[in-house]
Design a protein around this nucleic acid. Structure first.
Lengths: 239, 239
DNA sequence: CGCTGCATTGAAGGCGGTCAAACTGCGTGG
DNA sequence: CCACGCAGTTTGACCGCCTTCAATGCAGCG
């Protein structure tokens, strides 16, 4: 059931079968969320953390004037709120952008892991710092890249992350967000997002139809994005 | 010596004197860095993590066209690269923006802590997820706030963080960055940063002279920033 | 068949970028 | 001591990207 999470970990370190069993036994109570439902609400104090198994979810904050900024996109195999285990309280919400299937890990079990499983603890810690690395990459993209490059960079990142957990085909992946949601990721207006998307389409690096992204020219996309997957830390080593 | 780090932890949980002693014994080899020196270089594989004791440092990345984006600002009491303990390799550089005094914690010692000190491990983990929370707040500011609000937000955050570690006076703090460096924080051009700063000065919420920020109207600044310190997680609880 | 949510396009205006020049404070060397 | 240079700050002008407002197109669905 939690294969994508295991894949995420195994892309970065060796995980023993004992550790896998431990995780399996701990991550339970599968549940589904509909589009626009909150997986986790801002301001709450979760007593469990949520693993996304399938679908796309977003961390977000809404400002006083109603503007929304998405701070992270999550796909199958991601813990959407593991950081709430040390943090205790959610400083943002997590919403389902597509139908989502999830499972839960009680914080009491996570705590036990920190007491008896140092290596697994470091792996969980690793997952949260990879989140941080992605945040930093987004900051760089927002601050210093052109909008076209930023958008291309996002698609590169998503494609690579989806491939790791086996949820991307050769050069394409399901992506049923609205352009308005994508605009909230980039911090753009809907109108301008649409025009920026038009630039990528015009250069034939990418198509987006039937809720599916098809990358037609990976090298071109990567060049536009100046994409360097290094920050995703996709190499196995002893952590 | 590492008082500011302890202060950072004690603002968020009870730390036993035994744990403090452990940290004291582990964080050693004090060193100084001059302005513009790299505390940590991008692409390296550090075998120790760096605690900033005094001064201001920045995590940054430089793009191909030479543009720089600062992704985090660090002050006394911050680990500037604790995330490199699970991550192993630096995906960005860390530079001294003022003269910096630091000390080091060997990764081998950190690893031993994960094996024998679950509570201290969770505290260290906490520090890295607070970094993540700050990253998210920056993403929100970059994407959806006005530049004036973003700048005000940054000063609010810095003031609160500096107060926690005892490095801010009543309503003022030492801040000897250049405007060009601040522009790299906000993702703005130098010229426009200067004009945005002018807006805050004109509203008399803030002065910046002799390398010192003086907040003249905290409520006004906070209102402009829509600043909510919640994300800094400054409340003691059992982690 | 018409409704509804989403995508697309156009037009107008302002924010923020780049280029350029002047100004300030400070340290240094003649 | 003063002139100079340098680094950083400030201001102005121009232009283009991005926002907002508005209208139209389009596809799925009750």
């Amino acid at each position: 059931m939690i294969e994508p999470l295991i894949a995420n970990m195994q892309a970065r370190d060796v995980v023993s079968s004992r550790e896998i069993d431990l995780l399996q036994s701990m991550i339970v109570r599968e549940r589904r969320f509909a589009v626009d439902e909150d997986l986790v609400k801002e301001g709450t104090r979760p007593i469990f953390s949520t693993v996304l198994l399938d679908g796309i979810a977003a961390r977000y904050r809404v400002l006083e004037d109603g503007k929304r900024q998405i701070t992270a996109l999550h796909i199958g195999g991601d813990f959407v709120d593991l950081h709430a285990f040390p943090l205790k309280e959610m400083d943002h919400g997590v919403v389902a952008l597509t139908p989502c299937r999830v499972a839960f890990a009680d914080h009491s079990d996570l705590r036990r892991i920190t007491e008896t499983e140092p290596h697994l603890t470091r792996l969980l810690w690793l997952l949260t710092v990879v989140d941080g690395a992605i945040h930093r990459e987004w900051i760089v993209a927002m601050g210093r890249r052109s909008k076209k490059s930023h958008l291309a960079h996002l698609f590169c990142e998503l494609y690579i992350r989806l491939k790791v957990v086996g949820k991307a085909e050769k050069g394409s992946f399901a992506f049923s967000l609205t352009q308005s949601e994508l605009a909230d990721v980039l911090g753009l207006s809907l109108v301008h997002l649409n025009k920026t998307l038009g630039l990528l389409r015009k250069e034939s690096v990418l198509e987006w139809a039937q809720r599916t992204i098809t990358i037609m020219d990976w090298d071109g996309l990567q060049r536009i994005a100046e994409f360097e997957p290094h920050y995703l830390n996709l190499h196995v080593e002893a952590r």
